[in-house]
């Protein structure tokens, strides 16, 4: 498939390290993901209290998107940036926590604040809200990172003028094991 579109920026977060266009821009050592996420939040001067209500998958997707979108988004303008994410574990990290809240009939405490995060596309909603992106979005699940598919889908959105840019990639989180690998196609 020929493509007139190119990848302009990328961000990878894994093992408590953030890369922007393959250059290491932040690192902490030995932290849990929650501690690492909090340090990133402080380091980048993010002021967004909703962040602390998010589940780990949303926090991961949110932080990687902050790195890429902070320069892309023009306030007050219509930013037609589509969000197209994928991962392996869907929302299973939170699903397991929600399941634990209903395992014991004597101690039954399902919480709406947890239940809402038992859908993987909630992280897309969080990023849409933060950057006011009223744009195309989709969340896919694959066994392995399928950048070829995501790039093809991004191309179809750009070709059909459904978006002017596409932020896409892999955001996987399960039980402290995580990888965010996002890129912008335009």
């Amino acid at each position: 498939m020929k493509s007139q579109f190119t990848i302009t920026n990328s961000c990878k977060i894994e093992s408590n390290i953030i890369f922007f266009n393959e250059e290491k821009i932040f690192e902490t050592e030995g932290d849990s993901f929650a501690e690492f996420a909090k340090s990133v939040y402080k380091k980048f001067g993010i002021n967004y209290p909703k962040f602390f209500k998010m589940d780990n998958l949303s926090k991961l997707a949110f932080l990687a998107s902050e790195v890429l979108l902070s320069e892309q988004i023009i306030a007050e303008a219509e930013n037609n940036v589509a969000l197209v994410f994928a991962n392996r574990s869907s929302s299973l990290d939170t699903d397991v926590k929600f399941q634990q809240s209903i395992d014991d009939k004597e101690n039954y405490y399902p919480s709406p604040a947890v239940f809402v995060y038992t859908l993987p596309n909630i992280c897309v909603g969080e990023i849409s809200i933060k950057h006011q992106l009223k744009s195309e979005n989709a969340f896919f699940v694959f066994e392995e990172n399928n950048e070829v598919f995501l790039t093809q889908y991004a191309t179809s959105l750009l070709q059909n003028k459904k978006a002017t840019k596409v932020l896409c990639g892999w955001v996987e989180y399960f039980d402290e094991s995580y990888l965010a690998k996002l890129f912008i196609v335009e």
Binding site: L83, V124, G125, S128, I129, H131, Q132, K134, E136
Partner: peptide, 11 residues
């Protein structure tokens, strides 16, 4: 087709 987010509220 179109699949566009509200960018308003998660639930």
């Amino acid at each position: 087709d179109g699949a566009i987010n509200d960018a308003n509220h998660i639930s």
